[in-house]
């Protein structure tokens, strides 16, 4: 286990700056998830941590040691790749023991560590097989086994579940969470899947255009997004963003909206009286009422209802401003159109 520090890291490929002045501290034993859309710099940052890419400027420390110019093999890290990256000519056992054999560890020691990792990951019957004879899920377990046997200071995961089908992905996600509880290792995990990010992370780092947008616990990121990008990126379906203004109460397209305003927001709102604002409402925070039952709500023209069993996702347009799309997640039997 070791803490990680990224200090003012920048990475450019030619004129293209993919990581821009990034600083981040990761504590010992922490599970940090880098999340963001494709091309946001999250994988590049992970690869710089691994030593597979050199930062253009900045410094990387692992366990208090400056590793910026150290080769990957001397950083005491292990990495699980999206494509598994198993050695096709080696058996599962040879794959898992490769790093230990390179270190010239005693044979008995290697056997013991491989057997232990195989037991944890339930891959004991596969030890003599070659990667080609394994399913995707089994290969992913071997790739994790290869990381575990080394007992590294830091585990790095680069979208490890992206190549698996949905069911297996859920299963492996739970396994990774259990593994982290068991190993208590420092883990850095890259994904574009926010469900993985929310369920696995102690802290989430949201990336966009090579910059960190927000760092915080899943609850903080979800409840208090730092900016519009984080608000729209985290949460499914995407948060409704409604153009409005505030004048003692909210007005959407000329229509008044009776919304309770939290005390902590009141000073900011008072200061923004009369200005154009964006109001973010989670689809899960909306509910359906009869037009005459409650004060001024949002009048919405429904375009589509998607029944998902446990809930219904309703998409529509705002009555007062038809160009604004609204999505609501309602109980499965919300009584729409009934």
């Amino acid at each position: 286990m070791a803490a990680i520090t990224l200090e003012a890291i920048t990475k450019s490929f030619g004129a293209l700056k993919v990581v821009d002045d990034m600083s981040l501290d990761i504590s010992e034993g922490e599970f940090v998830v880098f999340v963001g859309p494709s091309g946001c710099g999250k994988s590049t940052t992970l690869r710089m941590l691994a030593g597979l890419e050199q930062p253009t400027t900045g410094r990387i420390c692992i366990g208090g040691r400056d590793v910026t110019s150290l080769p990957p093999g001397r950083r005491d890290i292990a990495m699980v790749f999206q494509s598994y990256a198993l050695y096709p000519h080696m058996t599962v056992k040879e794959n898992m023991s490769f790093a230990l054999r390179l270190q010239n560890l005693p044979k008995g020691d290697i056997e013991r560590r491989v057997a232990e990792a195989a037991r944890i990951l339930h891959i004991e019957p596969l030890l003599d097989r070659k990667p080609k004879a394994l399913s995707g899920g089994q290969r992913q377990r071997v790739a994790m086994g290869r990381a575990i046997v080394r007992a590294p200071s830091v585990f790095l995961f680069d979208e490890p579940l992206s190549n698996l089908d949905a069911q297996l992905r859920n299963h492996m996600r739970v396994e990774i969470a259990l593994l982290q509880k068991r190993l208590r290792g420092t883990m850095v995990y890259v994904t574009h899947d926010q469900v993985e990010a929310m369920t696995l992370a102690d802290r989430i780092v949201v990336f966009h255009k090579g910059r960190i947008q927000q760092v915080g616990s899943p609850e903080l990121i979800f409840e208090h997004p730092a900016n519009l990008f984080v608000a729209k990126f985290i949460g499914s379906p995407t948060m409704n963003i409604l153009p409005c203004h505030y004048d003692g109460q909210f007005y959407l397209g000329g229509q008044a909206l009776d919304l309770p305003v939290p005390d902590r927001l009141r000073p900011a709102l008072e200061a923004a009286r009369g200005r154009d604002l964006l109001l973010g409402i989670r689809p899960q925070a909306l509910r359906v009422v009869r037009a005459d039952e409650h004060g001024p709500g949002l009048r919405v023209t429904v375009d589509l209802c998607e029944y998902l069993g446990t809930e219904t996702v309703v998409s529509g347009r705002l009555g007062a401003a038809p160009q604004v799309q609204v999505t609501a997640v309602l109980p499965a039997r919300a009584g729409l159109g009934g």
């Binding site: 691994a50 597979l52 990957p72 093999g73 990495m79 050695y87 490769f98």
Partner: peptide, 21 residues
């Protein structure tokens, strides 16, 4: 598979070992 070669680097193989093994 480039990622297998990268995995070997992370496993601590020297450039010579990456080639030979």
């Amino acid at each position: 598979d480039q990622s297998a070669l990268e995995a070997a680097q992370i496993d601590g193989a020297t450039p010579r070992q990456v080639i030979l093994r």
